[in-house]
Simulated scan of single mutants.
Amino acid sequence: MTTSTTAPSAADVTAAAERIRPYARRTPLFRTEVDGRPLVLKLEHLQLTGSFKLRGALNALLATERPDRVVTASGGNHGLGVAMAARLLGLPATVFVPESVPAGKARRIEEFGATLVRHGATYADAVVAAWAAAQQPGSRYVEAYNDPLVVAGQGTVAAEVVAALPEVDAFAVACGGGGLGAGTALGAGGRLTVLVEPEHCRAVHDALAAGEPVDSAVDSVASSALGATRVGRVPFDVLRANPVRSELVTDEELLAARDRLWEEFRLAVEPAGAVPFAAWLAGRVPGELACVVLCGANTDWTPV
């Protein structure tokens, strides 16, 4: 039941890529120009389950002894990733979510075959209940971000980009608990990783400023995906040891970026998925050819 706190390495990302290859999509790259500047978009919102979270969940389950059942807590996207990973591997899964979970994400978790349990007002409340349920012998609790195997799995996103387009010189990713940011820092091959968060949903930014994980307030339209109140110790240690930079965007900026992705490219992402694009549009991501990771698309769209 305990989770290792040993920091993962670039070699762990390489091993994760081999493990998950039969199950996860190798999502496409879209090279374009916006406002006269070259840009690469990693279309990770086209991943199975609609977000990168499947990668870390698969790696966590494939790299350890097969459990009898899988348990996790999630604000939505991680739960979808765990539910699908368990389904692909033929394992039963239970996902605890806060009462505030978006209806679309809750519905899809159940559609993937997992048992959905609503508990508490916050993600932290759901975690407490999930950990208690996972004490049953044979259970495997899959952390959302504070697990070296999960972080290594998320790093395969950047590793795919580097392998296909080595000329990319910086990455911009959305951050919540730090799993994707830390994984990107490991998979980026020494390139700068710009960690982008909403200005009122900033666990990574506050931790880097304080020099250690600290509690942080959560208040953003993107909080269902980026609503960690504290960055995980495992990803934080990775981030401190690699070239990273923290940037914040307003809710107005990230919603405008989401709308622009749709209007110009017909790319439909949830608010959290547009966060790094918002920072790039505002000139806060350096590099001659940066890669912006569109990390999620788990939102409901109303047909017209």
Score class of each variant (00 low, 15 high):
residue 293 V to F: 00
residue 272 A to E: 03
residue 89 L to W: 04
residue 68 D to N: 10
residue 61 L to M: 12
residue 300 D to P: 05
residue 7 A to P: 13
residue 205 H to C: 14
residue 11 A to F: 04
residue 222 A to C: 11
residue 139 S to A: 11
residue 3 T to N: 12
residue 156 T to A: 14
residue 252 E to L: 07
residue 216 S to Q: 00
residue 275 V to W: 01
residue 200 H to C: 13
residue 43 L to Q: 09
residue 184 T to I: 12
residue 192 L to Y: 10
residue 212 E to A: 15
residue 24 A to M: 04
residue 104 G to F: 01
residue 251 D to T: 10
residue 297 A to E: 00
residue 169 D to R: 02
residue 64 T to N: 13
residue 180 L to D: 00
residue 234 V to T: 04
residue 106 A to P: 00
residue 169 D to H: 00
residue 203 A to V: 02
residue 36 G to Q: 05
residue 229 T to M: 09
residue 263 E to A: 13
residue 262 W to Y: 12
residue 9 S to K: 06
residue 288 E to G: 13
residue 297 A to F: 00
residue 235 P to C: 09
residue 104 G to E: 05
residue 152 A to R: 00
residue 268 A to V: 15
residue 19 R to V: 10
residue 176 G to Y: 14
residue 292 V to S: 07
residue 202 R to Q: 15
residue 85 A to R: 03
residue 168 V to E: 03
residue 280 W to I: 12
residue 176 G to V: 13
residue 191 R to M: 06
residue 17 A to F: 03
residue 225 A to I: 14
residue 164 A to Q: 14
residue 142 V to S: 04
residue 87 R to D: 01
residue 6 T to F: 09
residue 162 V to K: 04
residue 160 E to M: 13
residue 294 L to R: 02
residue 251 D to E: 12
residue 175 C to H: 01
residue 5 T to P: 00
residue 5 T to S: 14
residue 212 E to H: 14
residue 295 C to V: 04
residue 178 G to R: 07
residue 168 V to M: 01
residue 222 A to Q: 08
residue 188 A to L: 06
residue 166 P to F: 13
residue 261 L to Q: 02
residue 183 G to L: 03
residue 232 G to A: 03
residue 131 W to G: 03
residue 282 A to E: 15
residue 300 D to F: 04
residue 114 A to M: 11
residue 88 L to W: 08
residue 36 G to S: 01
residue 172 A to T: 02
residue 214 V to W: 12
residue 300 D to A: 15
residue 144 A to W: 04
residue 218 V to E: 00
residue 110 E to P: 01
residue 135 Q to A: 09
residue 113 G to D: 09
residue 213 P to F: 06
residue 216 S to V: 09
residue 296 G to D: 02
residue 163 A to F: 13
residue 159 A to W: 02
residue 283 G to H: 13
residue 66 R to K: 11
residue 260 R to D: 08
residue 52 F to T: 06
residue 293 V to D: 08
residue 154 Q to G: 10
residue 29 L to G: 04
residue 218 V to T: 08
residue 226 L to G: 01
residue 53 K to S: 08
residue 154 Q to E: 15
residue 12 D to M: 11
residue 44 E to V: 00
residue 281 L to A: 15
residue 35 D to L: 08
residue 79 G to S: 00
residue 83 A to N: 07
residue 19 R to K: 12
residue 101 V to I: 14
residue 245 R to F: 07
residue 144 A to Y: 00
residue 154 Q to T: 11
residue 156 T to V: 13
residue 239 L to A: 07
residue 152 A to C: 07
residue 287 G to N: 10
residue 53 K to T: 06
